[in-house]
């Protein structure tokens, strides 16, 4: 098992490293000078040159890259050029908002997706099954931004059940905080719920046709055991893969939807940092997101191995 985890982690390294290298070069090759951004339009060329030296921007690109690599491996991500605070201190508050939103959306997607998918599979061909399929196909086709706007219009502007935008932190009240997350979580969660419904339903149908399910019934096991233990156990394997993908989509969806709902999460941090040419913050944010994705994938792999001894015992 330990070997399995180590192998998975080794595979994950490029997943973290490649986006970071890409971001490094894209930022530096793109037009725009952080020194100008920081000092403003009235700065003299001397001031700008001094700041460039101070930031190491006057060095040739390969040297910058080597220094950057060294910083990366020693986790010295530097200070924000804008906030004048270490990046590692800056990120957690923003990351927390994004993670809350992602987690909330994931709960919505899983609760709806798993229960609707299982129900549909058990009622194969019946009216409820068809109804669920209909709603599912419709939901998959909804663009997230459009859904966000509709949700805001209906539930925030017209019904006034939830705030239009903005964020209340957990410390200021759990319910008030959740209320600010409901609409964004729905906006990104509905599509994933629909995708998960589809996957769960088809995985269940596949397994329900397996001879070993017939054996379980022929052995007289109660239907609850046949479904809960003999069917779900194997149907869960492909579903877990889709949940892992969902988390990736939800994370990126969260980053994007934060802008519509003015939530102070990684998306806002990242977009602001890019427009300010705040290199260390951009790189720190990308690193955080990449590491999160790797951790999610590792968890999926572990659940996988736990569910299927054929993987575990290989």
């Amino acid at each position: 098992m330990g070997k399995y985890i180590r192998r998975r982690l080794l595979h994950a390294l490029p997943t973290i490293f490649i986006p970071l290298v890409l971001v490094f070069f894209l930022l530096r090759l793109a037009p725009g000078d952080p020194a100008v951004q920081i000092l403003g339009d009235n700065a003299t060329p001397e001031q700008i040159a001094a700041l460039r030296t101070q930031l190491g921007l006057d060095q040739p690109l390969p040297i910058q890259f080597l220094l950057w690599l060294k910083g990366l491996f020693t986790l010295q991500l530097g200070d924000s050029l804008f906030f004048h605070k270490p990046v590692l201190e800056l990120i957690p508050a923003y990351a927390a908002v994004t993670l809350q939103l992602t987690f909330f959306a994931l709960v919505i997607a899983m609760v709806i997706g798993l229960s609707a998918g299982i129900a549909a599979s058990l009622l194969r061909g019946k009216i409820l099954d068809r109804g669920i399929i209909g709603v599912m196909v419709f939901s998959i086709s909804l663009p997230e931004f459009w859904l966000a706007l509709v949700l805001i219009f209906v539930f925030a502007v017209t019904l006034r059940w939830f705030p239009v935008a903005g964020y209340v932190s957990f410390d200021e009240g759990v319910w008030a905080s959740l209320a600010t997350l409901v609409l964004p979580a729905l906006a990104i969660g509905v599509r994933q719920a629909a995708l998960l419904t589809r996957m769960t339903r088809s995985a269940m149908l596949d397994v329900l046709d397996e001879p070993y399910v017939t054996t379980a019934r022929a052995q007289g096991l109660p239907e609850a055991t046949v479904i809960g233990r003999y069917t779900l156990r194997t149907a869960a394997v492909p579903v877990v893969t889709v949940i892992g993908l969902s988390v990736s989509y939800l994370l990126s969806g969260a980053v994007a939807i934060e802008l519509i709902f003015s939530l102070p999460g990684m998306g806002k941090l990242l977009v602001d940092a890019v427009s300010r040419r705040d290199y260390p913050v951009v790189e720190g944010s990308v690193l955080t997101i990449a590491v999160t994705l790797v951790v999610v994938n590792l968890i999926v792999d572990l659940v996988y191995a736990w569910l299927d001894p054929r993987i575990r015992l290989k």
Binding site: T215, A218, Y230, L307
Partner: peptide, 20 residues
């Protein structure tokens, strides 16, 4: 089933659960 009638299937590989 299982108590008064026992059933032996043709394909034990697919008729027994793969992950139990």
């Amino acid at each position: 089933g299982g108590s008064r009638i026992g059933f032996i299937f043709q394909e034990p590989m697919t008729s027994l659960h793969p992950t139990l």
